[in-house]
Write a protein that binds this DNA or RNA. Structure first.
Length: 393
DNA sequence: AAAGCGTGGCA
DNA sequence: TTGCCAAGCTT
């Protein structure tokens, strides 16, 4: 009862009028009937194993269903039990995750698997708070797993749900703000079907993914259009409210594929902080060492560096890595990689190792025959493809 | 609270 | 082409 009052106070504060019980019940039936007839047949909907549901939810974070499916299948086949995940090496995990992005997700999963082994006797916990305390599991994923795998009436508010509710109730909140999520959660606590909470949550997400979409939205085609205030009031084009994103930062590098006389290429492991942390790349030389204008001075159409730039580069490699190289001053290609918050402009060149200083360096030689054992982020794969295409292996 | 964190699809 | 979008979490 106390929680119920809190719910209504929060909604009242935001000028949100909740439906009466009859309307809520009618909505639940309409939504679930639609879901029963139209739900997508997805691999993780054929299991009630919380471990597998968890894997799917982590993979689906900010990632499209079609992308996830093959990764999901391979992951559960390779690591069928929580214990397998807890004991897997980071290399194994990253290889299973290669190309999915947001690599901290799988590192966190290994930590969480260790928590489950240590704190829950290897059994996936059922309690919402216990689930949420697992590394990498936030309010959405905790709600999704507890409702889908354990039939608990917990909200699972993701972008879909916020968009659907914004349109149904003409919500004026910016769905990009962290504080807004709590309001939507309180709405779901009042709306959720107590008999089928997991299906209710998934039905809202399916509705958002297939009908109540961000673009090309046709409200008249929705199974719950009669409940949709923004449709009935012809205000639906205003919702959901979301602030625009800021422009991304741009950086330029020389991506240098350095090979030695054994046919190995030299890779560097990125640091534990920042983008692509702990992932392998070719040498990445900040373009601004070459001149004050950085990549703009050569990133366009230039096929080679100037003599001066070339010497600066060779000196930099010697100083930074203790490596004497023969630089092949012929542009192999350019590639622009767009992250969520950052853009890399890569100019790709090759070089051969002539000599190494005795102090060694932070670079790791890897033969192309062994590339299949190592997880490379997409920018590294793109650079390799360009080097590989030109040299005709 | 806001920024950081990958990648691919789409108009 | 550029920008936005997709089943978020951590710091």
């Amino acid at each position: 009862m106390t929680n119920c009052m809190k719910n209504k106070d929060l909604l009242k504060e935001k000028s949100i009028i909740m439906w009466n019980e009859d309307k809520i019940e009618a909505f639940q039936k309409t939504l679930l009937d639609w879901y029963d007839a139209n739900k997508r047949d997805l691999p993780w909907r054929r299991t009630s194993n919380p471990y597998y549901i968890w894997i799917s939810e982590i993979m689906l974070q900010q990632t499209q269903v079609d992308t996830v499916i093959p990764y999901y299948e391979r992951f559960i086949n390779t690591l069928p039990e929580i214990n397998d995940l807890a004991e897997a090496s980071e290399d194994t995990l990253l290889k299973l995750w290669e190309g999915l992005g947001y690599y901290s997700r799988v590192r966190n999963m290994k930590v969480a698997a260790g928590q489950i082994m240590a704190d829950h006797n290897g059994i996936f916990p059922e309690d919402y708070e216990a689930i949420k305390s697992l590394k990498g599991i936030g309010p959405y994923t905790a709600g999704a797993v507890s409702s889908i795998a354990f039939n608990q009436p917990q909200p699972a508010v993701d972008g879909n749900v916020m968009r659907v509710l914004s349109r149904l109730f003409e919500i004026e909140l910016d769905i990009g703000k962290p504080s807004s999520r709590k309001v939507f959660e309180e709405m779901i606590r009042l709306l959720i079907d107590r008999e089928r909470p997991g299906d209710f949550n998934q039905a809202l997400m399916d509705l958002g993914a297939t009908i109540c979409t961000p673009k090309n939205y046709k409200p008249e085609t929705s199974p719950v259009k009669d409940f949709n205030a923004s449709y009935l009031n012809e205000t639906w084009e205003r919702y959901p409210i979301k602030q625009g994103k800021k422009k991304v930062r741009e950086e330029a590098y020389i991506a240098l594929a350095v090979s030695n006389d054994k046919g190995e290429y030299l890779f560097q492991k990125r640091g534990s902080e920042g983008v692509l942390s702990g992932m392998w790349t070719f040498l990445m030389i900040p373009a601004d060492i070459l001149d004050e204008d950085g990549w703009k001075s050569f990133g366009g159409s230039a096929e080679s560096l100037t003599q001066v730039q070339s010497e600066i580069l060779v000196d930099y490699i010697k100083k930074e890595y203790g490596l004497i190289i023969a630089f092949n001053n012929s542009l192999k290609g350019t590639y622009t990689h767009i992250f969520s918050h950052l853009k890399w402009h890569l100019s790709i060149y090759e070089a051969k190792v002539v000599a190494e200083t005795v102090t060694g360096h932070s670079l790791h030689p890897i033969h192309p025959d062994d590339f299949s054992d190592i997880a490379f982020p997409v920018p590294t794969q793109k650079v390799w493809n360009m080097v590989n295409a030109i040299t005709l292996f």
